[in-house]
Design a protein around this nucleic acid. Structure first.
Lengths: 343, 343
DNA sequence: TTGAAAGCGGTACCAA
DNA sequence: TTGGTACCGCTTTCAA
């Protein structure tokens, strides 16, 4: 209704008095067309306000210039920031992103999101997959659909991944605390073994602990917490840890959400942060940065940057290049929740 | 490369021994086809792992089941939450969302984002537009392209809008402070007149002030701040306000970012929140909720919910219904930054 | 350099 | 109920 009929390549052809093919050539700068004709076509197209129909082009070329982006929680600023980076690059290169949200790490939802995206014949897919979703993503690999996994990687899946160096991140987090004089450094762990990024952070943490003069047992300094994104759960876990280990003077929480839980736990236990307990997180989400009273010391993941890189990787894959994994170095961001150990 | 050729409607036709047309009918449950044939076609399609090509269908039907979503900062959890709501509904109804990020309220970027989205022949557009972008969005209206504006509305533009009742929100925010005994209630204003949502909140605030026994002059209790999303700028504005008006015992900041700035200002000025100064924000973003020490009292905007509603509105528009504006009631969320006035 | 025609994968219209 | 055919808007192949 009221919708203006869009001008097509044929309209221009008729107007200029050439064939549709010539118009197509001129529009795509294919060269083999005489300059005056080309110019006239371009002018007419412009005057008539021509916009190519990407669908039609996609249908014949088998390309859509569409990318799929799948993540478990787009409302989290963490994923939204990565998406923002992807989108920015896309807009520059003529791509568009379509979104698949896999609410709350439900494999079924994730699988549905992927199906929908595949039905759109996207040129490539960037996903922060559930590590258990091997069977969901495996078909992408075997069918050769460009696919980059970010954040998490699915064990055994032969698809390039982009992530921060989690082991190193865990290491510098613990090193930071050790350099402040702490030796009894707690860790909020997960009991879900498939979250490799967490176990890598744990590994870095234990490696740093090795440099301590007196040896400590990392296992005794850890608690398990089922969901490290849940502040309440992390708080409860931290309370347990702190009450059972009175000697702990610092805690490394492998996510910022967990770190916030830890600070909350300290507060409830009447311990001051950082005077009594130092706390360091991981990710550097907005929530860590914009704490009014206690901005969190944490390990940063460059999020927008990861979006850029993910786009570049998928672009290379689309153009047929072979690429390998990319690993970004995380950085220590010292803010207010860590301080020198004072016994 | 290695990409399996997708099975098309013709492959199924050949396999079953019917025409492509019959396959199309069967697949779309168009009815006028005999049950056994229908069944066989469906089975074969399933067995061959058939997936329809949405592009091809869109090309002929003139529909894409694609929606455009435009906002100024997708990395903000506020917009990301709305998007999340839109996406959830979309996934249920066979739509997909493509994203247009209009970084930092730059009209040119916004206009480009819209062009890209229009080139995709989307069925409808949901946008949180810059209020100054009249000329960018006007063509949508005159060409009858389904369009819903959320959050902000462009003055004079004849397109349905969805937003919170900002005047009412401003009113209940100020009422809350008044009920706590405050009468000198400061306001962080913007000097940019086109942000109607802010001026509406201000209007609600002044209306509430009218109920005070002794009359106060709202203008004397306001400062201008250019960017109410910028915490630093808001902090500086608040410091100025607080230093020039020693009698102020409460501040209404019309965004949560500004409210965080105000709390920071209080801290720097050696004033306690909420003992010396009560602070209330607006929006209820994650940053307000997850403050460790001082979760913010604020006025909530249901974000996910707005995503749902925006989808419903655009869906109605697409199906040709006439719809009118929708206004949601915001709610007071009392947390820790407001307290009884004690002179 | 240019034009005519085929075809991408579907749907819609018509006739059988 | 079914099949044939045109066509959506564009690119590609082949001839001219």
């Amino acid at each position: 209704m009221g919708e203006r009929k869009r001008v097509t390549i044929k309209d221009i052809a008729r107007e200029v008095g050439v064939s549709a093919h010539s118009v197509s050539l001129a529009l795509n700068n294919q060269g083999r067309i005489s300059e005056p004709v080309r110019k006239k076509i371009l002018e007419t197209a412009d005057r008539m306000n021509y916009r190519p129909n990407i669908l039609a082009r996609g249908l014949v070329q088998g390309r859509t210039y569409l990318l799929g982006f799948i993540c478990p929680a787009i409302h989290e600023s963490f994923f939204a920031s990565i998406l923002s980076g992807v989108e920015e690059k896309c807009s520059r290169k003529g791509y568009d992103v379509i979104l698949g949200n896999a609410f709350g790490r439900d494999i079924k939802t994730e699988s549905d999101a992927l199906s929908r995206i595949l039905d759109r014949k996207v040129d490539g897919i960037i996903a922060a997959p559930d590590p258990r979703a091997y069977s969901v993503y495996e078909p992408l690999v075997s069918e050769g659909i460009p696919f980059v996994q970010i954040m998490t990687r699915i064990p055994g899946l032969n698809a390039p991944s982009l992530s921060v160096d989690n082991e190193y991140g865990g290491y510098i987090a613990a090193r930071h605390l050790i350099e402040l004089g702490h030796s009894n450094i707690g860790f909020i762990n997960t009991d879900l073994p498939f979250y490799e990024e967490i176990s890598q952070r744990y590994k870095g943490y234990t490696r740093a602990l090795l440099s301590l003069e007196q040896s400590v047992n990392p296992q005794q300094l850890s608690v398990a917490c089922e969901n490290l994104i849940d502040i309440e759960q992390s708080k409860e876990a931290a309370k347990k840890l702190l009450m059972e280990n009175r000697s702990i003077s610092a805690v490394f929480a492998p996510t910022d959400h967990a770190a916030i839980g830890v600070v909350n736990a300290c507060l409830e236990l009447g311990k001051r942060v950082p005077e009594d307990i130092s706390v360091i997180g991981f990710d550097d989400i907005d929530l860590a940065h914009y704490q009014i009273m206690r901005p969190l010391t944490t390990i940063s993941q460059p999020k927008q940057e990861q979006g850029y890189l993910a786009f570049e990787m998928i672009e290379q894959l689309i153009s047929g290049e072979k690429i390998s994994d990319r690993i970004i170095k995380p950085e220590l961001i010292t803010r207010t929740t860590t301080a020198k150990f004072n016994k």
